[in-house]
Amino acid sequence: MKGKYHIIVQNNRLRYELDIRRNITIIRGDSATGKTTLFNLLEQAFTLGESSGVDVLCERPCRTLGGRDWNLVLPNLHDQILFLDEESRFIKSREFARAVKASNNYFVIITREDLPNLPYAVDEIYGIHTSGRYRDMKRTYNELYRIYSTEEFTGKQRVEKVIVEDSHSGYEFFQSVCAENDIACTSAGGKSNLKDAVSKQDKPVLIIADGAAIGSEMNELYQLMRCKPAVKCYLPESFEWLVLKSGVIDGKVIQDILEHPEDFIESQEYISWERFFTALLVEYTQDSYLRYNKSKLNEAYLQGRVKQAILTAVEGVNWGKRSI
């Protein structure tokens, strides 16, 4: 499934509005914000349809998924938006992760657990807040907000050390940039090692990681960063996304895709967006001097104009006074 979907769920007293645009969306946050109520309304609407008194308005069918037989039900569902509540213990299982990867549905999961088996994006972790009364003043209006905003992570101070999640091309690129600017640069060797790396830092450090799949690390990383204000994060979708965004690959098509990737990324083919951006970059550079290889960086990406364009695409990072 691909695309962005606007969902309205309402009864006489409550109205929820959500925009869902990736295969995995997480809803969490404080107690008493209406997460379970939203799920219960969807459950009632699915079970009883119109006679439930709940309106569910969306281009795609929306339903709940849960219970002991979820694994029998899921293979029969296609192109739907499925809501799962925190009572569903199976959401953290490898079996569920495999089922999500094989599915062409979108999943909206209400949970505070990190779910490391699922590659979800930092941008798709939401809380629910009440934004006031709806027109008739009888109905309370609820909507989603992003729990982790980019502004909180980046800073203006000069970077003294960079830790890159990746150990391949992305790391090689930033390692080269850092070397020219007398900045130490190391690879964490995977997203699950970032916490360890952060907890040992006291100097200004910049973490660079793929925002498209870092979701499961964010709760703990965010708390660690709050205790260590010198640690900042830069979370582009992925290094490949950054290259595409930089404009070094000509083409209106690419810029069009980057403006609304959800309309181009088939969720069953790409479990997370960074895989799509890698495939796109490989495809668009295969016959050029910028031929991209994820496991080993093509030297052309480290040369003058190309390197400068990629660095310009990096927002909110102070690399220091030396010109790059």
Binding site: R13, E86, T140
Partner: peptide
């Protein structure tokens, strides 16, 4: 304040 009069079973999961 949002749902009006509710039963004990409708308080939040956290509480």
């Amino acid at each position: 304040p949002v749902l009006g009069p509710i039963s004990t079973k409708e308080i939040s999961g956290g509480v």
